[in-house]
């Protein structure tokens, strides 16, 4: 909300919180899925985030991150993906055998490429 708007009306226009599946960008999902096919297997049980050492202390949640990738909510991913410490404990727990560490690595790589217009 710009200062000008606020000054004039005392209120602004709320942005939509809706996930717009038709305009969101699933290039990251496609990039990750191609390079780490086990990405498709996540069924959101939360075993990874229950055991996650980083998520114990800060707002990092691999289960949520995977959903954001699937939905194409890339802006929310940028920060999230940097918070993983890649300890790999989630891989010990995952009942679907997702290579979670590589999912994080591939996501970070995809975002770097996206930001350099290489995706």
């Amino acid at each position: 909300m710009s200062v000008r708007q606020a000054n004039r009306f005392g209120f602004g226009i709320n942005q939509s919180r809706q996930i717009n599946y038709d305009t969101s960008d699933r290039k990251v999902r496609d990039y990750v899925t191609l390079r780490e096919p086990s990405f498709r297997l996540c069924f959101a049980c939360g075993g990874c985030s229950a055991t996650c050492t980083a998520g114990e202390h800060i707002s990092f949640n691999l289960r949520r991150m995977i959903t954001l990738i699937r939905r194409g909510e890339i802006d929310l991913l940028r920060d999230e993906v940097t918070r993983c410490m890649l300890c790999g404990k989630c891989m010990l727990v995952c009942p679907r055998g997702v290579n979670t560490r590589n999912v994080v690595a591939m996501t970070a790589e995809a975002i770097r490429k996206l930001d350099r217009n290489e995706l």
Partner: peptide, 12 residues
């Protein structure tokens, strides 16, 4: 900047 993780894990 990440050392707080380390410390928090030990404290736990």
């Amino acid at each position: 900047a990440n050392r707080g993780y380390s410390l928090s894990a030990s404290r736990k």
